[in-house]
């Protein structure tokens, strides 16, 4: 156990206290760490080249040599699942980063500006929010052409309105605070106010939301790949692997099973962490 200064964040006692208080959050953190390690050290962890084909050894069942079996062109599924973490985690983080940055900026601006600007922005968001999100993302991805990058863009665009609403709500609340009012009175530029006062204070709920959103983003991205609108071969991507594995479902159960499990565990990790963070940061639901 890591022991740093007593009472510090990395103090062993404090860590243990958190784990006991919220074991699920600890599990989530552990899952995320595992996935991140896979992402960073994929070439060292994976026993085989994820793209090396071997037509003679196709659809082999799990064995010591190939723990998750092999796919329809004889690639090692274990290595592909390990490498697949890069696509999924990368796209999850990117989607949330993009939609959070753009969305919160618009939202904070809208809330602060108030009046007609606010109304117009919010009506536009209402319209965007009444689109069925997955279908919208699918249509966008189809229009842009299938690639992991375009899938990421499509999902990020669809997620923006949620952050606009969230940040605007925060901004509206904070606008009435004395220090913001004071800043307005002293003639500070609106953007400056957003930067200096509103965003930092609205951060807690946004962090919670974005952690939960990474899980959702990973799921949505894998869904797009499953439908064939995401990752391109030979990139190892979990949703695409489940999609191809689907035709071998009844005879080669391992093919779709392991990549899907990887999605579940990764998205689950972020959702557990997000849930835990919300409990920590939201005083209302904090334990009595």
């Amino acid at each position: 156990m890591i022991s740093v200064r007593k009472g510090g964040l990395l103090d062993g006692g404090y860590l243990w206290y958190q784990v006991r208080r919220s074991p699920l959050m600890a599990v989530g953190t552990l899952l995320i760490l595992t996935v991140l390690i896979c992402t960073a050290f994929a070439p060292w962890i994976a026993p085989h080249d994820p793209n090396a084909i071997n037509l003679v050894n196709r659809l082999a069942p799990p064995s010591f040599e190939h723990p998750f079996g092999t796919d329809e062109v004889g690639r090692d599924l274990f290595s592909r699942v390990i490498y697949g973490s890069r696509a999924s985690v990368g796209i999850g983080l990117a989607i949330v980063a993009i939609s959070m940055t753009i969305g919160s900026a618009i939202g904070a601006f809208s809330g602060l500006a108030g009046g007609r600007t606010d109304t117009v922005i919010m009506r536009v968001m209402d319209v965007l929010l009444s689109f069925p999100p997955l279908v919208m993302a699918m249509a966008l991805a189809a229009a842009l052409g299938p690639s992991l990058f375009n899938a990421m863009l499509a999902i990020a665009v669809v997620r923006i309105p949620f952050y606009v609403r969230l940040a605007r709500g925060q901004a509206l609340g904070l606008r009435e605070r004395p220090y913001v009012r004071a800043a307005v009175t002293f003639g500070a530029r609106p953007l400056g106010i957003v930067q200096r006062h509103i965003l930092p204070n609205a951060l807690a709920p946004i962090i919670v939301q974005s952690t939960l959103d990474i899980g959702l983003a990973i799921l949505t991205a894998s869904a797009l790949s499953f439908i064939g609108l995401g990752a391109q071969q030979p990139t190892a991507e979990w949703g695409a692997m489940v999609s191809t594995g689907r035709q071998f479902l009844l005879d080669q159960w391992w093919y779709p099973t392991f990549p899907g499990l990887a999605i579940l565990l990764t998205a689950g990790g972020f959702n557990l962490l997000g849930d835990g963070l919300r409990d920590l940061l939201d005083p209302k639901t904090r334990a009595r």
Partner: peptide, 17 residues
């Protein structure tokens, strides 16, 4: 959390299997 994190397309396949 499992429910929220499960890819529906994968769960469906497992159930079919």
């Amino acid at each position: 959390v499992t429910g929220i994190s499960t890819p529906a397309f994968w769960l469906g396949l497992l159930l079919i299997m």
